[in-house]
Structure formats: C-alpha cells, structure tokens
C-alpha cells in the first residue's frame, strides 16, 4: 500500500511516465510515419512534463522577481531547460516531416510496411 500512496502523491510523474511509454509504443509499432513523428513528440513532451513537475512547489509563483514582496518562487531551472528542450523537439520534428514529405513523393504512401512491400517487389 505504501507504493500506492507514493504513486498517488506523485501522480504528475506517473502520468508523464505513462505518456512516455505510450509514445515509445506508438513510435516502435505503428507503421505510419506521421504517427511515428507524432509519437516522438508525445515522448518528448512527456519528459518535459516530468521536468516541469520536478520544479513545482505547492503555492509558489512564476519566477519573475517582484521587489519587496515575500513570495515563494518555483524552481526556475527545469523551466529554463525545457524551453531549450522544446526548441530541440521542434527542430527534430521539422526535419522528420521534411523527410516524410520526400518519402511520400517517391512512394505515394506514408506507411512503412507498404514501402517495404514496394521495395521488395522491385
């Protein structure tokens, strides 16, 4: 039962992990390339969620300093890291989509299994 209460306390982390596994599953099993790219984004986003959740404190505010006020701020570091992470994910997505566009031009399909079929026929 200790484990169960632990999970309920850390439900944010648990959701992130489940999202990660869903993303990984979709990425590795679906044949559609667009779905693979979307799954890649789900996977990255789940880790961003995990990171941002690490930085959170109950009752804290966004780290924009107001002079003189006595406020608790959230940890700025994970948020800052994830800004970089989001840009990285965007870049990878853009490149992956350009590859899909080109592959679609050659084979008229986005499905990996169909492409393998077409290639084996040649």
């Amino acid at each position: 039962m200790e484990i169960l209460t632990g999970i309920i306390d850390n439900y944010y982390y648990m959701v992130a992990i489940i999202l990660f596994v869903i993303g990984m599953y979709t990425m590795l099993t679906h044949a559609n390339m667009i779905k693979k790219v979307i799954a890649m984004n789900i996977m990255d986003t789940s880790v961003f969620l995990l990171f941002v959740a690490i930085g959170y404190t109950h009752g804290a505010q966004a780290p924009i300093i107001k002079e003189g006020a006595d406020i608790i701020y959230v940890n700025p570091l994970p948020g800052a890291l994830m800004l970089t992470g989001i840009v990285v994910a965007v870049s990878v997505t853009a490149y992956a989509l350009s590859l899909v566009v080109k592959i679609y031009r050659f084979y008229e399909t986005c499905d990996y299994d169909e492409i393998c079929e077409i290639r084996s026929l040649e």
Partner: peptide
Amino acid sequence: TLFYTIIEGE
C-alpha cells in the same frame, strides 16, 4: 524558411 522550404518541396 521552414515553412517555405517544406511547401516548395511538396
């Protein structure tokens, strides 16, 4: 640039 390049590629 990303927008235009991918559009042109299509």
